[in-house]
């Protein structure tokens, strides 16, 4: 769930499908830019791709180093909340998955002690907190929303997650998937949100962390797993920067 990038990105869907990751630069090399970059041969853009991906991995490490686990994102008042809150995903709004909350069970797996699935009632029985923060989309726009749910750190502790593991991954009902680093997962404002501005944007469960871009806030979560193997993500695997911290 790419949170917010909606109509715009969906409008590009056919192109995106065509532009597989290794092609993601090719079409932009207008203006003779390519000749400046790699000695004129069109075949060389694999090398350019590799260079850019290397830089993206380097930027992952820089952002991880820059991340301050104690620094809180600015918070706002109810009056600042953006209404209507924009819908954004890799598909159109009418294609959002319909989930039956009664029978919903959150699966948890990987490096955790207690793999018992969670019902919505179980999740609501945990301590709840809320936040009003700015969601920044990788496209550039932003919106202020209100989210309420379980502190993700608390949840990870409850399921006996290995908090020294590198990644927390998410698989979603809309076939979206993503992953975040453990320090961001443990940040005090990282929330397993049960109530949001408008419930259809992620019902019944989404991750909300104001320390990362919108597309790192998966919606319609069906499974959470803890791992040391890089899980990637829907947009990340297409060439977007993985860490994408704010």
């Amino acid at each position: 769930m790419k949170p917010p990038r909606s109509e715009r990105l969906s409008a590009f869907r056919p192109q995106i499908a065509r532009l597989e990751r290794r092609l993601f630069l090719k079409q932009g090399l207008s203006l003779g830019a390519l000749s400046l970059l790699s000695g004129c041969t069109l075949k060389d853009d694999d090398a350019v791709d590799r260079l850019l991906l290397t830089m993206s991995r380097f930027n992952d490490r820089v952002q991880a180093a820059l991340f301050d686990p104690a620094k809180l994102a600015p918070t706002y008042s109810e009056a600042d909340v953006t209404t209507p809150f924009p819908f954004n995903a890799y598909y159109e709004e009418q294609d959002i998955p319909v989930i039956d909350g009664e029978n919903y069970r959150l699966q948890v797996s990987g490096l955790i002690a207690d793999k018992r699935p969670w019902s919505l009632g179980d999740l609501r029985a945990l301590p709840q907190s809320s936040q009003i923060t700015r969601l920044v989309c990788v496209e550039g726009w932003s919106a202020i929303g209100k989210w309420r749910g379980v502190a993700f750190r608390h949840f990870l502790e409850r399921i006996g997650a290995d908090l020294t593991a590198r990644y927390v991954g998410f698989r979603c009902a809309d076939k979206y998937y993503s992953s975040i680093d453990m320090p961001s997962a443990l940040h005090p404002q990282t929330l397993l949100a049960l109530d949001f501005t408008e419930a259809k944007y992620g019902y019944p469960l989404r991750l909300r962390l104001p320390t990362k871009l919108g597309f790192k806030n998966p919606k319609f979560i069906g499974e959470i797993f803890v791992t040391n193997d890089y899980p990637g993500g829907y947009w990340e695997d297409k060439g977007y920067n993985w860490f994408s911290g704010s």
Binding site: L19, L23, F24, L25, G28, L52, G239
Partner: peptide, 21 residues
């Protein structure tokens, strides 16, 4: 579009965040 670099948003961001260094 013909006067831009990157092909699509992810490519443009990759260029931007590489060349910024």
């Amino acid at each position: 579009k013909d006067f831009t670099l990157g092909g699509w948003l992810a490519g443009a961001l990759a260029w931007h965040f590489a060349a910024m260094w």
